[in-house]
Amino acid sequence: MPVRRGHVAPQNTFLDTIIRKFEGQSRKFIIANARVENCAVIYCNDGFCELCGYSRAEVMQRPCTCDFLHGPRTQRRAAAQIAQALLGAEERKVEIAFYRKDGSCFLCLVDVVPVKNEDGAVIMFILNFEVVMEKDMVGSPAHDTNHRGPPTSWLAPGRAKTFRLKLPALLALTARESSVRSGGAGGAGAPGAVVVDVDLTPAAPSSESLALDEVTAMDNHVAGLGPAEERRALVGPGSPPRSAPGQLPSPRAHSLNPDASGSSCSLARTRSRESCASVRRASSADDIEAMRAGVLPPPPRHASTGAMHPLRSGLLNSTSDSDLVRYRTISKIPQITLNFVDLKGDPFLASPTSDREIIAPKIKERTHNVTEKVTQVLSLGADVLPEYKLQAPRIHRWTILHYSPFKAVWDWLILLLVIYTAVFTPYSAAFLLKETEEGPPATECGYACQPLAVVDLIVDIMFIVDILINFRTTYVNANEEVVSHPGRIAVHYFKGWFLIDMVAAIPFDLLI
């Protein structure tokens, strides 16, 4: 008679799926529990143990900040960024110097990925580790590398530091407007667009060049630039800015003055950032001319202004700041037409079709709590990747769950009947059967004279019903998954307890 339990259901295979997918890609990662103190490590794979030199037993239950890997060259700011990422709910990448158990130093890129439950609360953290440099290539500990984003994938490793954006290309926007319009339909740009040429040739750093990471940081200074100062900065030398009595002219307006920039070969870094931020506020060169004239017309309804409409929906549905990093990277690809469009465009503009998908598509409701890094690593669709929660398995109709209350009560009843059979069957065979043979035949009273025979008949009927119930009862397979398919249940029961239950259900007393 089957006594099969499996009270692990309803099970959740999400954690096993993450481990299996990460292991298949030869990654070095740990999984931490966000619900406990210090976000203790609950799993670390073999790749991480080989990377740091510690065994799994030495890593388990330690804080996922990996303070046991810190050393003299470990930056405090990087460690603080990892700790801050564990307090938030967004994906974050941090470069930090770690030390192995043998004392060797290596520069590592740590990717902190939160995993949320159905309520939107962070319950786990996945920390992925990628070695960037070994100890002989690690720089000085005073050099802070965590304020910069990861290198873009479309640049060669040897040319990542030679990417320079020439400031004269930004200063000569109005001069290039006529050349853009003359391109017409034969050019790649839309009317009114501004073409910015980027020099990728390796050259020595000069005062006129600005690194790509500095251009990325310009967006942080746009908020500090007032509207009046932006307007004066875009007017140009024809209309000098008016300053109040006793007030000095704005240095932001002076930063885009061609006369002032041409007199000296070098520009201050602050002026460069502010000038680029001011130019980015204009949607095209037409807006710059309109600002000089004193009238700013409404933005025209053409394809170039609607190019950012799908980007707005993608940004609203993005799951991490990696989408913004990807957008900034692609927006700086050289030799393309940049349409400086305000994100607050007309909502009635139709979304044009684009061959290049900048932001990841909208994630469906079932995966809105899973970050983009987890979705990318697992390579699963929205119909396959579940949320991290207890999910009731989908069972067929008329199927009994093996952990249901009805099955528990039924098993206790069958257990009592088995005990009765084990006690009274030998007793009936030894004593009652002998008395029946010696006594007179009682054929007239039937079952009324033999109450134990009636009980034995009921017990046999219950055993037959138990066999039928076992054909529709779920079970737990070797992978700790609840199986509810009727065919698989029948095959599993035939290979197991079916023969024993059938022999126990045969009414031998009635056959004798």
Score class of each variant (00 low, 15 high):
His221Ala: 07
Ala83Arg: 09
Gly6Trp: 08
Ser264His: 04
Phe125Lys: 01
Pro237Leu: 12
Ser261Trp: 05
Gly149Tyr: 06
Pro300Lys: 07
Ala160Gln: 14
Ala85Leu: 01
Val295Tyr: 15
Asp321Gly: 12
Leu338Cys: 15
Val110Ala: 01
Ser209Ala: 03
Ile42Arg: 01
Asp219Arg: 10
Gln335Asp: 11
Ile96Thr: 04
Met137Val: 07
Pro386Trp: 05
Asn257Trp: 12
Leu165Tyr: 14
Ile288Asp: 13
Thr17Cys: 13
Pro258Trp: 05
Val138Met: 03
Val222Phe: 15
Thr174Val: 10
Ser104His: 14
Arg35His: 15
Glu95Ser: 09
Ser261Glu: 14
Pro352Asn: 07
Gly381Val: 08
Thr371Ser: 06
Leu15Pro: 05
Asn146Cys: 15
Asp219Leu: 04
Ile30Met: 06
Leu170Thr: 11
Gly192Ala: 12
Phe48Arg: 01
Ser250Tyr: 05
Arg242Ser: 04
Val138Asp: 14
Arg20His: 05
Asn117Val: 09
His302Gln: 07
Pro240Cys: 07
Lys161Gln: 13
Asp342Gln: 05
Val295Phe: 14
Val94Ile: 13
Phe340Ala: 14
Thr216Glu: 10
Asp16Pro: 15
Pro334Gln: 07
Glu134Ile: 04
Cys39Ala: 14
Asp213Val: 05
Ala34Leu: 01
Arg20Gly: 10
Gly149Trp: 06
Thr216Cys: 03
Glu90Asp: 13
Cys49Ala: 06
Glu23Cys: 06
Arg148Thr: 12
Ala121Asn: 05
Leu171Val: 10
Gln247Ile: 09
Leu107Gly: 06
Ile19Arg: 01
Pro168Trp: 01
Met133Phe: 10
Pro10Thr: 12
Gly187Gln: 15
Tyr54Asn: 01
Val131Asn: 06
Leu311Met: 14
Glu95Ile: 04
Ser55Trp: 01
Leu107Trp: 08
Gly71Ser: 01
Gly192Arg: 01
Thr270Pro: 09
Gln11Gly: 15
Gly314Ile: 05
Pro72Ala: 09
Glu214Ser: 06
Pro245Phe: 04
Pro251Gln: 11
Ala89Thr: 13
Ser179Trp: 01
Ile363Phe: 05
Thr367Leu: 15
Ile126Glu: 01
Thr329Met: 03
Leu200Pro: 15
Asn38Gly: 13
Gly236Lys: 04
Asp213Leu: 05
Ala307Ser: 14
Ala360Tyr: 14
Ser182Gln: 14
Ile82Asn: 04
Ser283Leu: 14
His143Ala: 09
Ser266Trp: 04
Pro298Met: 06
Asn146Ala: 11
Gly246Tyr: 14
Gly120Arg: 14
Gly183His: 10
Arg328Gln: 11
Val180Gln: 03
Lys362Arg: 13
Arg4Gly: 13
Ala188Ser: 06
Pro141Met: 14
Met308Trp: 05
Gly306Leu: 08
Ser179Pro: 08
Pro297Ala: 07
Ala156Leu: 14
Asn12Ile: 05
Arg326Phe: 03
Leu171Lys: 15
Leu267Phe: 09
Leu324Asp: 10
Gly224Tyr: 14
Gln25Ile: 07
Val8His: 13
Ile96Ala: 05
Met308Asn: 05
Cys39Asp: 04
His368Ala: 14
Ala9Ser: 11
Glu58Val: 04
Arg4Thr: 09
Arg181Phe: 06
Gly158His: 09
Arg292Glu: 14
Gly314Asn: 14
Ala244Asn: 14
Asp102Asn: 09
Leu225Arg: 15
Pro168Gly: 14
Thr216Asp: 06
Lys161Ala: 06
Pro347Cys: 15
Thr337Leu: 12
Ser206Thr: 15
Asp287His: 04
His7Asp: 15
Val341Ala: 15
Leu248Val: 12
Arg77Gln: 15
Ala285Asp: 14
Pro347Met: 09
Pro114Asp: 01
Pro72Glu: 07
Arg328Leu: 04
Lys161Glu: 14
Cys105Asp: 10
Thr371Asn: 03
Ala32Cys: 06
Thr319Phe: 05
Glu37Met: 09
Met137Asp: 04
Pro202Met: 01
Ile288Thr: 12
Phe22Met: 10
Val279Asn: 11
Arg73Tyr: 15
Thr145Leu: 09
Pro202Phe: 01
Met308Gly: 11
Ala303His: 04
Cys265Leu: 08
Gly120Trp: 04
Lys21Asp: 12
Asp144Glu: 11
Ala185Arg: 06
Ala79Tyr: 02
Val132Lys: 13
Arg312Asp: 14
Asn220Arg: 07
Arg271Phe: 15
Thr13Ala: 07
Ser266Ala: 05
Ile333Asp: 15
Ile31Cys: 04
Glu357Ser: 12
Cys66Ser: 01
Ala253Thr: 07
Ala293Arg: 10
Leu378Asp: 01
Thr319Trp: 03
Ala382Glu: 15
Pro258Val: 09
Asp16Leu: 08
Phe48Ile: 01
Cys66Trp: 01
Lys161Met: 03
Phe129Gly: 01
Ala175Asp: 07
Asp321Cys: 15
Gly192Val: 03
Ser318Leu: 12
Ser304Phe: 08
Ala175Asn: 15
Pro114His: 06
Val122Met: 09
Pro386Cys: 02
Glu90Leu: 13
Pro237Glu: 14
Leu248Arg: 11
Arg4Cys: 14
Ala211Val: 13
Arg280Tyr: 07
